[in-house]
Simulated assay, not measured.
Amino acid sequence: MSMFESFILSTFDILGFIIISNALLSEEIFKNKYRVIMYLLCFSFTIIPIDLFIPSQFSFFMTFISTFMMIYLLYKKSIKETVFIWGTTTIIVIATQLISVLPIFIITGGLKEIFLYGLISNSIFIALIMLISSYMRIHLIYDFVKNKNNLFVNIGIAIFILITIIFTYSKIDRNNLVNNIIFYITISLCGRIVVVN
């Protein structure tokens, strides 16, 4: 994949992070469009060398650091709040990304690193992100944590770990991602039982 193609796909990822984190906080950062565009372009460029020069099974860790820094600089919250905002946003973004590749997987029978496939799945991703931010009251999640709902925090941590494991596995073995969905659901249920108990 070329540098330009990597930049385009990275822009979708960063835009997803900005839209979801903004909806989570119920803030109006999109009023300052130039600031949002600057962050979008800046952090999209930072992901390019990560995608191109770091092995895919490790690159997402660097992407995590980059998106964390973006959220910290964008909202200027405390480190503790930033960790929560970033963690929750990451859960929603990765889960949505995993859903958005399903049509390509079903149609082609596999997941290949082809720009057109990436463009289609990322277009689905942004459409889903827009629906989530517009019609789901995800800002209530932030309110729960601000009110120190420990059960909600623990479940969130368990989900974050699970999503990270799934995403890591999807980078290592893309084509078995959908085939092993029952395995993921089983782990998720087990993790939920452990956290609740």
Rank of each mutant, 00 (worst) to 15 (best):
I37A: 13
M38E: 13
Y39P: 04
L40M: 06
L40C: 03
L41E: 01
L41M: 13
L41W: 05
L41V: 15
C42A: 15
F43S: 05
S44K: 00
F45C: 15
F45L: 15
T46P: 06
T46G: 03
I47K: 12
I47D: 08
I48Q: 00
I48R: 00
P49L: 04
I50M: 09
I50S: 13
D51Q: 08
L52I: 10
L52N: 12
P55N: 09
P55M: 07
S56G: 00
S56R: 10
Q57I: 06
Q57F: 03
Q57M: 08
F58A: 07
S59L: 02
F60Q: 01
F60C: 03
F60T: 10
F60L: 03
F60H: 13
F61P: 03
M62Y: 14
M62C: 14
M62P: 00
M62R: 00
F64Q: 03
I65G: 03
I65M: 11
I65P: 00
I65H: 01
I65Q: 02
I65A: 14
S66R: 06
S66K: 03
F68V: 07
F68C: 02
F68Q: 00
M69R: 03
M69G: 07
I71M: 06
Y72I: 01
Y72Q: 14
L73H: 11
Y75L: 07
Y75P: 04
Y75I: 07
Y75D: 10
K76D: 14
S78I: 03
I79S: 04
K80E: 15
V83Q: 02
V83M: 13
I85L: 14
G87A: 12
G87P: 05
T89P: 05
T89R: 04
T90L: 11
I91A: 01
I92P: 08
I92D: 01
I92G: 09
I94A: 10
I94P: 00
T96G: 05
T96P: 03
T96C: 05
T96S: 14
Q97A: 09
Q97E: 14
I99T: 12
I99V: 14
I99N: 06
S100E: 10
S100C: 08
V101I: 14
V101E: 07
V101R: 05
L102P: 04
P103Y: 08
P103A: 12
P103V: 06
